[in-house]
């Protein structure tokens, strides 16, 4: 069971470091007694939401102004202990807003309609099918789970920032200094980070592990839909079937799991 911590993270997400991990721990303890030849099997928590490939659909038609999106950003940054810095160089963000020309630089043109041109777009980690960040990480500190979520092991990251150079979506932030004094209100259920490590959106893996939808989705008033891309009956699939949706920089072949209905 030496690799249990690693396996554990893969299943339970970062919640393993906080609360809500007890059911999984219990399962681990129970399964540890099986014969040694077989790989240790880790069962999901009894309430855990599971999928083959998690995906998010942003229905931008339901967005009128930044005010519709701010609660999602606040919810995310609050529960994940994202600090707020004065110095823009040290900025950390998991989910934020961009204009169309920045969100979709290769699809921008001068005749984009007025609504889209000034519409704020939610920007977050795409949890790619072929994540370049995972490919370049020299310590496997960032890795892709079986359900498609790309996660960070904050305790293994050496802070080389190769993943930041590799990410074609600018989704990653680095702790240029100790973030703790800059967290307004610390959420004890999620780890704070130390200086010198990289972080990003985790699709709320710690919430999925205990049967809850991502915080931004919960706060989105139906703008965001989250579900299993592998399940034809899932809400995300139904939305994608009925509406034309685009992804960021499709030509790069990264295979983003975040879709935008324009």
């Amino acid at each position: 069971m030496k690799s249990s911590r690693r396996k554990f993270l893969k299943i339970a997400g970062v919640s393993a470091l906080g609360l809500g991990a007890k059911p999984v721990l219990d399962v681990l303890a129970a399964s540890g007694e099986h014969e040694e030849t077989s790989k240790p099997e880790i069962m999901k928590g009894k309430d855990a939401l599971i999928a083959k490939r998690w995906a998010m659909v942003v229905d931008t038609r339901k967005i009128e102004s930044e005010e519709d999106l701010k609660p999602m950003i606040e919810a995310c940054h609050k529960i994940h202990n994202v600090p707020e810095f004065e110095n823009k160089n040290h900025e950390i963000k998991w989910i934020w807003l961009e204009e169309f020309k920045h969100e979709f630089p290769t699809q921008e043109h001068e005749f984009v309609d007025e609504r889209v041109k000034h519409l704020p777009f939610l920007t977050l980690c795409n949890h790619c099918q072929n994540p370049a960040c995972v490919r370049v990480c020299p310590t496997k500190a960032t890795f892709k789970r079986e359900d498609g979520i790309v996660l960070m092991d904050f305790h293994r990251c050496i802070g080389c920032r190769f993943c930041m150079a590799a990410c074609p979506y600018g989704s990653r932030s680095f702790n240029f200094r100790d973030p703790r004094p800059f967290i307004k209100e610390t959420n004890p259920e999620f780890p704070t980070r130390t200086k010198g490590v990289v972080e990003k959106c985790n699709f709320c893996a710690e919430r999925l592990a205990v049967g809850r939808m991502p915080a931004c989705v919960e706060a989105s008033n139906g703008v965001l839909t989250f579900g299993d891309l592998d399940d034809p009956e899932s809400e995300v699939r139904k939305l994608l079937k009925a509406n034309y949706a685009i992804r960021r920089k499709p030509a790069l072949g990264a295979g983003p799991s975040v879709f935008y209905i324009i």
Binding site: P138, T139, K140, I158, G159, C160, R161, G196, V197
Partner: peptide, 26 residues
């Protein structure tokens, strides 16, 4: 220069503890 660029220099041995051939840095 690589060493002074690391955010967590004391963890540098993680590169050996968790060798990752798909990383060019390895």
């Amino acid at each position: 220069f690589i060493f002074v660029d690391l955010g967590q220099p004391i963890r540098v041995m993680n590169v050996l503890l968790h060798p990752t051939p798909n990383s060019i840095l390895f």
